[in-house]
Design a binder for these strands. Structure first.
Lengths: 234, 234
DNA sequence: GGATTGATCGTGACACTGTCAAGCGATCGG
DNA sequence: CCGATCGCTTGACAGTGTCACGATCAATCC
């Protein structure tokens, strides 16, 4: 055990320090994160390698290992960055909108907007197999982004359908969005095989949100043999 | 260009030829596929390597390359196998059920059943970045599984809501299921962070299907060129 | 029956990767 | 001014994908 864990870099600040060449490099961690995103964007996650990242950043091949310890560490940092931008985008998307339904639509659009503008980040954010599973910052940051959606669903429930169970509903929205970005490529190939015109991502989002909003408005926790029913406070 | 593409192995038969040691090995392709899922199940997709697969199958390190050409090729074969079992499972799940809603619920349960019983396959099936993107067999097999869902949604529309647009609705269901298996781990960590009891996969599926069924029943194709604000009539 | 052919698989080699120990240089506290 | 520590490089080792080539066996042809 020699180094492994430099002083805990200031990640939340996203400082992008303009001070070029402070002591040795400036701040390598941020530069390496940027290079990692660059590599993923051009060569895909499959072509990702610490050495390629180091090469593109102009440092030696072991430099990434010093700051992030592991490939998982660097990818986790990228994922954290992605969740930060997602949270900011969603928070900005719902800002100034009053009606919960409109907020939900805005969230859907913001989600695909982030997914299309930062594909490299999104290729990593939900890939728990290549991420530091028990990274605290990653968990809290992901939760922060999710909570925007959950509070919106809660508002929708409060105004339109008090009997709606908020948590499952919010998770359905989240899952549908996530599944959409994952499956969109496959949908396109299916469209091609069936000879139909391909539907764009935004079109899919529009249809999905409309379908789900209708579902959330009419849902009532009826029959099923689900004993742990929570009283859905009203 | 020497070999690369042996005569096109009979994959659909799933023969599992009992004839041990036919001429050289028996049929290495199937054995290698089995070893591949074994490796993925034990070491995860991250620990997957052609050499490890070869080692576990008791053949030389280049043998997998001969039959599948590439790591992508072997993983694609695994994915094809997964889609076959998924299609069979869904077809068997809806068999004998008349009501489309019940069929949809059965499909949801069958989906998570496959996801939990064959996690190694599911870890690969939707990971287009590690798959042969333009593999014909993969595309058709995936389409076959999807079409069971789509026809069920079509039946549901015909009986309960003729104004429902079938294709987007079916894709929503598919996306939600896919997103659920992808995000379930993250949901659990969120539950842990919030101190609530964790919801199992089956519980999630139950809630999701119920929510979506309500949505599919009430959906009406309103204005396609959606104006920014809908009056939210109830 | 013996030789040929082609499919099946093994061997060896190369470039590449992750990871670690050790080294070097600049910076800072004393 | 000098050691200590941080930042990063250098060098090395095992493991991997991929290719060319050699070896082995089944089936076929004459």
């Amino acid at each position: 055990m020699s180094r492994r864990e430099p002083p805990a870099q200031s990640s939340t600040s996203t400082s992008t320090s303009t001070s070029t060449s402070a002591y040795h490099h400036g701040d390598l961690p941020n530069a390496l994160r940027a290079s990692a995103v660059d590599v993923i964007r051009s060569h895909g996650l499959h072509g990702f390698s610490l050495r390629e990242v180091a090469r593109r950043a102009g440092v030696s091949h072991a430099a990434p290992g010093y700051h992030f310890g592991d490939a998982r560490g660097l990818l986790t940092a990228v994922a954290v960055e992605g969740f930060e931008t997602l949270r900011d985008a969603l928070a900005l998307a719902v800002e100034g909108i009053d009606d919960p339904i409109d907020r939900l639509v805005a969230i859907g659009r913001g989600y695909v907007r982030v997914a299309t503008e930062h594909p490299a980040h999104c290729e990593v954010m939900f890939r728990d197999d290549v991420l530091e599973a028990d990274d605290e910052q990653l968990a809290t940051e992901g939760l922060g982004a999710y909570e925007i959606l959950e509070t919106t669903v809660a508002q929708l429930a409060a105004r339109y359908n008090p009997r709606l169970e908020v948590q499952p509903a919010a998770r359905l929205c989240w899952s549908a969005m996530q599944g959409l970005v994952a499956l969109h490529a496959k949908f396109s190939t299916i469209d091609a095989l069936q000879g139909r015109p391909t539907m764009s991502l935004d079109e899919h989002v529009e249809r999905f949100t409309r379908l789900m909003v209708d579902g959330l408005l009419h849902e009532e926790p009826t029959q099923p043999a689900r004993p742990p029913r929570r009283p859905t406070r009203r």
